[in-house]
C-alpha cells in the first residue's frame, strides 16, 4: 500500500463508535432532547440523528432510515467509500481535489437544506 487509506480508517472508527453508541442506549432516554426544537417547535437538520445512530448500533436499519434517512444512507455507503479508498491507497493515487465549482457547492447546500426540510415535514 503506497498511501494511507484515511477514509477507510475513519470508516473503521465510525463502526467502533456505532457499537459504543449502542452501549449507551439504556440511558439515552434521559437526554433532554433537541434544544432547537424545544425553542422553536420545529425539527433541526439533525433531529433524529441520535436515534438513527442508536438504531444502527443494534443493526436495525429500517428504524435508522426512519429517524434520519440521509445519515443512514450515508452510513450505508461508507463500506463502498472505504473500498474505493483502499483501492486508491493501494494504487498510490492522491485524493482528488474538491471541485472548484459554484454549482457543486450550491448542490451540497441544497442537499443539506433538503435534509432539513424533510425532517421538518415528517415532524421528526
Amino acid at each position: 500500500m503506497k498511501r494511507v487509506p484515511w477514509v477507510a480508517l475513519a470508516t473503521l472508527l465510525t463502526a467502533l463508535g456505532l457499537r459504543v453508541a449502542a452501549l449507551l442506549e439504556p440511558v439515552s432516554g434521559l437526554l433532554p432532547g433537541c434544544a432547537f426544537k424545544r425553542l422553536t417547535g420545529v425539527a433541526c437538520a439533525t433531529c433524529g440523528l441520535t436515534r438513527c445512530v442508536m438504531a444502527i448500533g443494534r443493526w436495525d436499519w429500517r428504524e435508522a432510515f426512519h429517524w434520519h434517512p440521509a445519515a443512514a444512507g450515508a452510513l450505508a455507503l461508507l463500506p463502498i467509500v472505504a473500498a474505493w479508498d483502499l483501492r486508491r491507497a493501494w494504487r498510490g493515487d492522491p485524493y482528488p481535489e474538491l471541485p472548484d465549482s459554484r454549482a457543486a457547492r450550491l448542490s451540497v447546500w441544497a442537499i443539506l437544506a433538503a435534509m432539513w426540510a424533510l425532517q421538518v415535514a415528517r415532524g421528526i
Binding site: 453508541a21 449507551l24 440511558v27 439515552s28 434521559l30 437526554l31 440523528l49 441520535t50
Partner: peptide, 21 residues
C-alpha cells in the same frame, strides 16, 4: 459546527450528562 456539531452533540451531551448528574 452546523455540519457536525449537531450530529455529535446528542451523544457527547449524553455522556457529559451522565457525569454531571
Amino acid at each position: 459546527v452546523l455540519l457536525l456539531g449537531c450530529c455529535v452533540l446528542g451523544l457527547v451531551s449524553l455522556m457529559l450528562f451522565m457525569v454531571r448528574m
